[in-house]
Amino acid sequence: MTTSVAEWHQRATTGNRRAVGRLLSLVERGGSEADAITDLTFNTLNNAPVIGITGAPGSGKSTLTGALVSLLASQGLKPAVLAVDPSSPLTGGAILGDRIRMDDRVYAATHNSDQSTHPFIRSMATRGHAGGLALAVPAAIRVFDVAGFSPIIIETVGIGQVEVDVAAVADTTMVVVTPEGGDSVQANKSGLLEVADVFVVNKADRPGADQTKRDLDLMLDLSHVSGHDEIVGWRPTILMTQATAADDDESQITGVWSAIQTHQEHLTQSGQLAVRRRERLRAEVRSRVEQSLLADLTGVLPAVDSPELDGTHSPLALARRVTDRFRSPGSPQSK
């Protein structure tokens, strides 16, 4: 007796955690079941806020996320976390260890409470293919959304364009940096910093934390000069935290949450929220189109033993042949 996608979906919308877990596995795998889930979830969205948290490995993202989630749960909210970690490029396996930085606090905060109100934490491996993640993450956000979770937090390692893109599709993106993150030159060349709505300088007890904050401020001053601030109408907030001490000093985490909320109010009032959600939808459409075209492309490329690859034709000429073949005669995009 196998349970159908529609049945899992039905159970998930009534808050069944195992059904949510199963739907997440299915959207991660892709294919027709994942597509069916997208159709089922898309029309019943609650449009919960989506928060991206990103930063270098070891910057304290997970510890901070755990502290934030506990705070939200103690306030009666029902947050969900999607923690994305890299797969091994060699074996495809992964060690997903974000939960160990979150669980202790989360379970301490919600101990003895009704299990249905617990935050939901899900680990997702990148599985080596960028396109898959670009489809799986928005689909997972929708699963959390229809199951009534809010806010939805996406935690990714801020290395590689894909991870940055994933964090950047959030309504509010928080970038976690540490005092060891390098000087202001590093701050300017890293694309990661450009997607931030809120900065957190974590491990603020370490030497150099004030300098890191000053470097970020200087970088933001230059964004101001270039007119970037005026376009989005928001200058990113910079906060200092020591996430491991959150139990002793809750004010740091409440500060982080209030900075996120201030940004969300700005998004709503300025109309930027609608713009971001349109951008998010567009990015997903683009990923789907790319995936679909890529799948078709494999049949069109010349085989390795093809005479075309005898070295007498330039890559440019061969590529033109392929694209000409791909754009079949008569179709609107062919010339």
């Binding site: 091994s88 074996t91 396996g93 997903l96 260890g97 939960r99 669980d103 680990s123």
Partner: peptide, 10 residues
């Protein structure tokens, strides 16, 4: 992990 599995380490 090296055998290609995804380990959720608690």
């Amino acid at each position: 992990r090296d055998a290609g599995m995804e380990v959720i380490y608690l």
